[in-house]
């Protein structure tokens, strides 16, 4: 962020407030930094005593849970590729072409998707997947997520592309590029920060989701981590907190790593705007 305001007014106060809010956001998560290393099950925040890595050993010994992380990755990456590419193409077309009715379409789809995200729509989706013979496959989960996330992805990306001046592509086309070339060679690099937002957003959504895989998958070998985490519940149905915390930590690392990588490499922006 290049613009700096002269700190004539309470810059310290601003910093303190920002830090305070940040700390408040961190509080509910602190437990997850301690509990996985604790030999004893505790809901309270305590220094691990005895300190142990055994919880991780146990978790990695659970082949179902390890396989589930891999399954989550397949489903999330597959879904992200589909959402990212389809949404980019569609949002670009909606922003740059003059197809009739394009103005309202993202809003209407957004509203449709709000109905479909409710649980009543799980039935038609189940019937479609079942009729297509896709039950219990990764593809079923990938396609369903792609369809469900696309309206919002298109909505966000379209906003992003609308905020990029058309002059980029115009000058390319003046230089003799075709509209499709202008898209791939000129527009795509400029849109990239927006695509990155969609990638992270859809990855996070698929990675954490329970209901859709639960309804569309059957065999243990296909279930994602959001389902497998329930294998760290005792026979009585209570969570085994030490193992659950350890698995949660492992399960959370990929999304954190993805965010850090993306914000380091591309930045994380919603609009093209003036500063390209």
């Amino acid at each position: 962020m290049k613009f700096t305001l002269p700190a004539f007014f309470g810059r310290m106060a601003f910093s303190a407030l920002a830090a305070l809010i940040g700390a408040a956001f961190a509080l509910p998560l602190l437990w997850f930094l301690f509990a996985p290393f604790n030999g004893r099950a505790e809901l309270g925040l305590t220094i691990p005593d005895p300190f142990t890595l055994n919880n991780f050993v146990t978790v990695f010994g659970n082949s179902f849970a390890v396989q589930a992380l891999w399954n989550s990755l397949i489903q999330a990456v597959g879904g992200v590729i589909l959402v990212g590419s389809a949404a980019t193409l569609a949002a670009y077309a909606l922003s740059r072409s003059s197809i009739p009715g394009k103005g309202a379409v993202t809003y209407i789809l957004l509203l449709f998707s709000s109905v479909v995200s409710g649980s009543a729509a799980m039935v038609p989706i189940f019937l479609i997947i079942s009729a297509a013979g896709l039950m219990d496959t990764h593809l079923a989960v990938i396609l369903t997520f792609a369809g469900g996330l696309l309206p919002t992805a298109m909505f966000i990306l379209r906003d992003f592309i609308d905020s990029i001046p058309k002059s980029y592509e115009e000058s390319a086309m003046v230089a003799g590029a075709s509209p499709v070339q202008a898209f791939f060679d000129v527009a795509l690099p400029v849109i990239r920060p927006g695509i990155v937002v969609i990638v992270v957003w859809s990855f996070v959504n698929i990675w954490g989701s329970f209901l859709i895989p639960f309804i569309l998958l059957r065999s243990d070998s296909n279930m994602p981590a959001a389902v497998a985490i329930y294998s760290f519940y005792s026979e009585a149905g209570t969570p085994v907190v030490t193992l659950l915390a350890a698995y949660s930590l492992i399960y959370s690392l990929p999304v954190i790593a993805l965010y850090l990588f993306v914000s380091w490499k591309f930045g994380f922006r919603f609009f093209g705007g003036i500063k390209a």
């Binding site: 961190a26 509910p28 954490g208 329970f210 981590a225 959001a226 999304v255």
Partner: peptide, 10 residues
Amino acid sequence: IAAWILPEVV
């Protein structure tokens, strides 16, 4: 952002 991206079961 961590609060936003962590899986919901977690």
